[in-house]
Every structure is written in C-alpha cells, then in structure tokens.
C-alpha cells in the first residue's frame, strides 16, 4: 500500500517532470517463456508487483551490439542485447541497486548508476546466436570491457552475471 502510494507519487513526478518516453508505459503481457523477472522498486509492472519479460519483449526494447573480449571466452565476441540503461528507463528506475540472481542462485548487486548509455547490456545473442543455459544463456550481463578500461575490473567482472533470471530493485 505504502509502496503503491510512493509509486504513484513517483509516477506522477515522472509524468509531470520528465514528460517523455520515461512516462510509464504499460508493459505488454509476455507471450513466450519468461526469461527475466524484475521485482522491487519499479514503476511499471505487468504481473503483480513484478515486471516479467519474454525474449520478444526484451528484443522490443531495442537491440545494442558490442564487439568485445571477455575473461570467460576465447577471442573477441559479439554480444547483442538490451541495454540496462534502457531497461531501467522503461521500468522507471533511476537510483538504488539491482540484486541480480542467476539460475544457480548466484547473486550479485549492481548499482543502478552502472546503467548508463554505452554501459552494460543484458545480452541474449552471442555472435548472433541465442545463448542456451549451457552457453551462459539465456541472459548474460555484459559490460563493453574493451571499449571502456574502467570495466576491466574485478568488481565489474563479478557483476557480469550470466544465466541471469531475476533482478530485484532496492532503493539503497
């Protein structure tokens, strides 16, 4: 209840002050298999308190492709996905942190401040191919390590969570 009031206030604030694409759009209901569930302090939901996405919905948010090497792969790879920035924008999240959880319950905190343009993406294509669970799919948080030296850091590597299934937005 309290959260809802706050959400409404925030939504209003966004509506009044942001006046643009940030304005909460109603998320479509996923038709395919759900690949990502976002919970917590989000402005837009489509399943209870959560926002759930299938592959098509993520793809609809806009594709970003990077060429970069990673510590876990051999050679330069091409990664395609939705930028975290865009996702946060869609969900009306501007601050706080994201608790990202993998399929095997690996969990890590990603500050919302990481979600910048030309920042991390939720990749669903590696070298143009969908990633299976065996290949760290279906979603993998990939930072453009080669494009920005700041991303070649252990903290960033630890945030590069693969087999991602859940994001929980907290306000701290």
């Amino acid at each position: 209840m309290f959260a809802m009031i706050r959400n409404i206030v925030a939504a209003t604030a966004v509506a009044v002050f942001a006046a643009g694409p940030v304005a909460a759009e109603a998320l479509p209901v996923p038709t395919g298999e759900i690949v990502l569930t976002v919970t917590g302090d989000i402005q837009v939901t489509n399943q209870g308190d959560s926002a759930v996405f299938d592959a098509e919905m993520l793809k609809a948010l806009g594709e970003v492709t990077y060429q970069t090497s990673t510590p876990w792969t051999d050679g330069v790879q091409s990664f395609t996905g939705v930028s975290l920035h865009r996702l946060m924008e869609v969900l009306g999240v501007a601050e706080g942190s994201l608790k990202a959880t993998a399929i095997n319950d690996y969990a890590i905190d990603i500050p919302v401040s990481d979600a910048v343009e030309n920042g991390p993406i939720l990749a669903y294509l590696q070298n143009g191919q969908p990633m299976s669970v065996r290949e760290k799919g279906p979603l993998w948080v990939v930072y453009p390590y080669d494009l920005n030296k700041d991303y070649q850091a252990e903290v960033i590597f630890s945030r590069s969570i693969w087999q991602l299934v859940r994001l929980d937005v907290t306000d701290d």
């Binding site: 090497s69 990673t70 510590p71 876990w72 792969t73 051999d74 399929i103 095997n104 299976s132 669970v133 065996r134 290949e135 760290k136 693969w162 087999q163």
Partner: peptide, 17 residues
Amino acid sequence: RRFDIVYSRIRLIAESN
C-alpha cells in the same frame, strides 16, 4: 537444468581465458 549448469561450468573451465 542442473546438467546444463554443470555443462556451462565445464565449458567455462575448458574455454575461459
């Protein structure tokens, strides 16, 4: 699912820099 995770792990060890 678990097999796939193990699979991804072993692939990681076999391929990762």
